[in-house]
């Protein structure tokens, strides 16, 4: 049986070190070929928002290309690709009501809309679940 683990995330992008740690954990699981479920709740639904834009940074003295500013939507896409290449799958589910109240429905390909029932179903089908709440 394939190994499946589930994460629930709550932080919006660019606000907390928790987001980066979550991506590191997902990366480890994806490289192993595990199936990884992510339920993005509240602010975390903006993580795969398609309109994120990189910018230059005058303080760093770099133009946009040199700065290579991280966009969380690109991290999600890269992890989906890594999971697939290793024989697994990253299933990213955005809480639909959370998306609507924030107006971030335009997401990258592969992200789908869901409900808290999806979190319960995903967790029930997983070996382990980690909730990374916000403050």
């Amino acid at each position: 049986m394939a190994t499946t683990i589930t994460f629930a995330l709550m932080d919006p992008p660019y606000e907390s070190a928790r987001s980066t740690t979550a991506f590191r954990l997902i990366d480890i699981a994806a490289r192993r070929g595990y199936n990884v479920n992510v339920f993005a709740y509240e602010g975390a639904v903006a993580t795969p928002f398609a309109q994120q834009k990189a910018h230059p940074n005058a303080v760093h003295g770099r133009d946009a290309a040199q700065e290579n500013h991280p966009l969380p939507k690109d991290w999600v896409a890269a992890l989906m690709q890594a999971a697939a290449q290793n024989g697994g799958k990253l299933d990213w589910v955005n809480c639909g009501l959370c998306v609507d109240e924030r107006g971030v429905a335009e997401v990258i390909e592969g992200v789908r809309r869901g409900t808290p029932g999806d979190l319960w179903r995903m967790a029930s089908e997983s070996q382990g679940t980690l909730i990374i709440g916000t403050r």
Binding site: R24, I28, R32
Partner: peptide, 14 residues
């Protein structure tokens, strides 16, 4: 950080 993924994959509580 891998030990956390090991733990989840083994069914531990986190």
């Amino acid at each position: 950080l891998d030990v956390i993924v090991d733990h989840l994959a083994a069914g531990g509580k986190a």
